[in-house]
Amino acid sequence: MSQHTISPEITFAPDHLGGTKRIWKTFYLLSILTIFELAIGLTIYNIHKGAHPNASLVLAFKGLVCILTLAKAFYIVSVFMHLGDEIRNMIMTIVVPLALFIWFVIAFLSDGNSWKNLRNTDAGSKPDTHLVAPAAKEPGQKD
C-alpha cells in the first residue's frame, strides 16, 4: 500500500501516468463524429427541400445520428470523465441504473404516439385523416 494522500478509503494509489495523447485522440474522434452528425443534419435538410421527401430515408438518417450521439456520449464518459479507468464495480453501478432509461423512453414515447392517434381519430370514432388520404387542404387551414 502506498500513500493515502486523498482519502483513507483509497487502498491503492491510482495510476495517472498516461500522457495527453489519449485525450487529444478522443478530441479528434469527437470532432469527426460531430462533423458527421452535421453532414447528416444537412443531408436531411436537403432531402426536405426536395419535392417528395423520402420519409423512411429521413428516419434512417435520424437513427444514425442517434447512434453517433451515443458513441460520443460513450467517449466523453469513458475517457474525459475517466470512468473507463475506474474499477469494474464502479462502472457497473453507474451504467446499470441508466438501463432504466430504456423502459422510461419506450413507455413515454409510445404513449405520446397514442395521444396523437387519439386526437386524429377523435378517440377512435373516425378514421385517421392523416393516414387515409392527403386531403386537399383549404387555403390557410392549419393541421
Partner: peptide, 22 residues
C-alpha cells in the same frame, strides 16, 4: 419500482396497450 409507474393511470387516457405491459 421503476418499471410500473403507469398502473396509477390505467383509466386516464393512457395507451391501453402500454397499460397491459404495466
Amino acid at each position: 419500482a421503476f418499471l410500473v409507474w403507469a398502473h396509477h393511470m390505467f383509466v386516464t387516457g393512457m395507451n391501453p396497450f402500454v397499460g397491459s405491459v404495466f
